[in-house]
Amino acid sequence: MQWITIFKKELLEDWRNFKWVWVPLVFIIICIMDPLSTYYLPQILDAVGGVPEGTVIEGPELGPTEAIMFSLTEVSMLGVLVIVAISMAVIAGERKSGVAELVLVKPVSYFTYISAKWAAKLLLVFTAYLIGMLTSWYYVNLLFGDLSASQFIGLFLFYFIWLIFVVTLTFLYNTVVKIPGLVLTLSLITIMAMSAINQIFSFRMPWFPNSISEHITTMLAEGAIPNDLWGAAGITLGLSVILLVASNFILKTKEMAD
């Protein structure tokens, strides 16, 4: 009951500050930007001019799976940035402003407080990402050829697991510090560090969370879900659960006032 109350309040808050409008719009742009600009590159160059007469510009021959991976690459950078930015103040902001002093003096458990907010933010991220990717899928089908529904669903859901991890990581930092800007910085540093670790040790750690997108590429190429994708997805989900539980314990050690 309390959980639903906080969940609804979060949805209402994001509705009133227009996150439910601009986040999906931003995701549409993020997702279609690369496939579209790649496809229309010759025409764009032509229109801008400056290309000597007679030059033939040939874009690389792209298949639909490569084109949709362009979208995922953008989501992994700009999309993740947007996700961290919209989640950085979700608890830290309330602690910093003092609203938490009114809310957490009511008999509500910290885990209810955290998990309800987490679920509400995840729903927003899911929706925005879904709308963005569906738009991308539409254009990919139109411009680069058919991408089957099963392939789309597979890549969409597996990559969403990585986004769950990103949201949860930001929530963890929300309980550690109460300055939203610092939450943003720490989250991004962690994600970048993980990405670096992944690149260095990718052969030794096929189940590392950041390797999900590589395994998705393999999945699209081979047409079957590789075992390593299941492994990485499982590890990432498990880590998310651990981070969420850890957030609860960290928040409990914090004083709600200073």
Partner: peptide, 9 residues
């Protein structure tokens, strides 16, 4: 609290 803060929205 001494300086109660609410959700302004």
């Amino acid at each position: 609290p001494q300086y109660p803060v609410f959700h302004p929205w």
